[in-house]
């Protein structure tokens, strides 16, 4: 993964947590954030596909993102929600533990993710450090590491093509 060092082209990311990790996706891909609503289960699909849900007349798959990324499945709680995103024209909902913030970053800040010996190292597009808001409103100067997700690599069809 190479880092693009374009200068000061700001982009916004939505950050959310899965377990103890903070992730980010490009804000442009986000369609909406919904409350968790039990989707209709589908037969004969990988377990990370939780089922399908009705998004204003569209049938969209709901994906357990933690499982999809190989982490422990999310445990549902009051702040669980679904990020509805558009990936190359297809819509999907990702179950996440909590949505945190919308932050502006510059491309230059993105650092490459370490090459990992997994089947799909490309899922993480890069790493970026952001300062987070502490409870008292002040900024935590140490900041948090955000794993930027490559949505294209998460495309459900693509994954299945690979599995096949």
């Amino acid at each position: 993964m190479t880092t693009k060092t374009e200068t000061a082209s700001d982009c916004k990311i939505v950050t959310f947590t899965l377990g103890k990790q903070t992730f980010g996706i490009d804000m442009g891909a986000l369609i909406e954030i919904r409350e968790w609503d039990e989707p209709t289960p589908l037969p004969n699909v990988p377990t990370f596909i939780k089922g399908v849900s009705n998004l204003r007349g569209n049938v969209i798959p709901v994906v357990g993102l933690a499982e999809r990324l190989g982490w422990e499945p999310s445990v549902l709680h009051a702040r669980s929600c679904i990020l509805v995103v558009s990936i190359s024209g297809k819509q999907a909902g990702f179950l996440v533990d909590e949505v945190n913030d919308i932050v502006g970053i510059t491309r230059g800040e993105i650092q490459p993710a370490p090459e990992v010996e997994t089947i799909e190292s490309s899922v993480i597009d890069g790493l970026v450090r952001i300062s987070t808001r502490a409870k008292d409103g002040t900024r935590d100067e140490n900041g948090t590491m955000v794993l930027l997700l490559d949505l294209e690599a998460l495309s459900l069809t693509k994954h299945l093509d690979m599995a096949a």
Binding site: N44, I49, G57, I60, K90
Partner: peptide, 18 residues
């Protein structure tokens, strides 16, 4: 509603409806 619009066809299912 076709499933492959946002997912892929699933064997045994002709689609979904709301």
């Amino acid at each position: 509603k076709s499933l492959d619009q946002n997912l892929h066809p699933i064997r045994g299912l002709g689609g979904a409806t709301i």
